[in-house]
Amino acid sequence: MSKNPTSHTPIDVGDGAAIPNKNDAGLFTAWRIAFFGAIFVSLYLAFGKSDPYYEIFKFVPDGILVTFKVTFGAILLATCIGLITGLGRISDNRFINGAASLYVEVIRGIPLLVQIFYIYYALGRFVKIPDMLSAIIAMAVCYGAYMGEVFRAGIQSIPKGQMEAALSLGMSRGQAMRQVILPQAFKVVLPPIGNEFIALLKDSSLVSILAVSDLLRRGREYASETFSYFETYTVIALIYLVMTLFFSKLIGIMEERLNAGK
């Protein structure tokens, strides 16, 4: 029995995306250099060196919008799948628990690229839906499994006494989950979900192998016509970098706000 039952154990699920932290001065300046450097280099290439960079910058933004659509669509859907999976993973019902665990194990055991191909073509075989939607579903199914683990860990980080207190007041398990456990768990899972979002933003470039004109695919289209491979991929990399760093910062700020509100 701990004396401080309301403190949550922080959970650490996530990958590479470095969310800048005010206390970490080195990383903070690294973020600045990378972010503003990338913007500066972009501006210089577009307006200072103009040819062919100006053309490239004019050609690829269509893809940025698609990349955003895929990323936001997939993160929303993945969060829903993740919540259901997470609840399934802690369920006492053997069938539900088994199904959720199987999903997580299968997805985690297959490379993301293979999954995207597989789900995209599997979907295409049975239903007629737009390419973009298939791509979003494919990404969401993959990320839903990881998100499921985030939610499972988040829910399990809430002290057992919270559920017991809710139950002993006469609430059903569902009521206790909705009113007491999940509101607390959401706060815990928000930072890892931010990390997943950044990772998804980057991995969304994988959908360029499908018939979805995201940022990377637009770049490939341009490059294969003009043969300016180096210039095109320089621009593509710069744009991804700016987007990723921008959202990392945004999530970092949101997290700080959240902690300040405690």
Binding site: P5, T6, G161, A165, G170, M171, S172, Q184
Partner: peptide, 19 residues
């Protein structure tokens, strides 16, 4: 739930809802 509605419980670790 019907039983628990009628029987209160107070825990060692309080278990107030922190949110």
């Amino acid at each position: 739930c019907k039983v628990r509605e009628e029987i209160g419980m107070v825990f060692q670790s309080f278990n107030l809802f922190p949110h």
